Simulated assay, not measured.
Amino acid sequence: MADRDRRQPDSRPETPADRAQTRTDPVREAPESDAERRHRRAQFLRELNEARELRDRVQPRRARAARMRQQLRMRTFRW
């Protein structure tokens, strides 16, 4: 009971939104270079591809159904 009395009246658990508001990102002097942007994009695409492969491994029935739908779309596509 004594611990509750010592807390501030409006103390509550910090939420991610609260942390985002209090976070201060350093201001960059120079804009991001093309090489940095390409590197970040390549990293993102690698992680995205890895996540898709993992999802396909853990949900084989859904992955097979998605492949079948894609094949059907490709067969019905008109050039």
Rank of each mutant, 00 (worst) to 15 (best):
M1K: 07
M1I: 15
M1C: 14
A2Q: 13
D3K: 09
D3C: 11
R4E: 15
R4Y: 10
D5H: 13
D5N: 11
R6V: 08
R6F: 07
R6H: 12
R7D: 09
D10W: 02
D10F: 09
D10N: 08
D10K: 08
S11D: 12
R12C: 04
R12S: 12
P13K: 00
P13Q: 12
T15Y: 03
A17P: 03
R19P: 07
A20C: 02
Q21G: 05
Q21K: 14
R23L: 10
T24K: 11
T24G: 06
T24W: 04
D25C: 02
P26A: 12
P26Y: 00
P26L: 00
R28T: 03
A30I: 08
A30Y: 04
P31C: 05
P31G: 01
P31L: 01
S33K: 01
S33L: 10
D34K: 12
A35F: 04
A35Q: 11
E36V: 00
E36A: 10
R38Q: 12
H39T: 10
H39C: 08
H39N: 12
H39F: 06
H39E: 13
R40Q: 13
A42R: 11
Q43M: 09
F44H: 12
L45E: 11
R46N: 03
E47S: 05
E47L: 14
N49D: 15
N49R: 07
E50P: 02
E50Y: 03
E50H: 07
R52F: 13
E53A: 10
L54C: 01
L54H: 12
R55L: 14
R55K: 06
D56L: 05
D56Q: 03
R57W: 09
R57F: 00
V58R: 13
Q59S: 12
P60V: 02
R61W: 04
R62W: 12
R64H: 13
R64D: 15
A65D: 15
A65L: 14
R67T: 08
R67M: 14
M68H: 01
R69L: 11
Q70E: 14
Q70Y: 07
Q71R: 03
Q71S: 05
L72Q: 15
L72S: 15
R73Y: 13
R73Q: 14
R73M: 07
M74W: 04
T76N: 07
T76K: 01
T76E: 12
F77R: 13
F77G: 03
R78V: 08
W79P: 05
W79M: 01
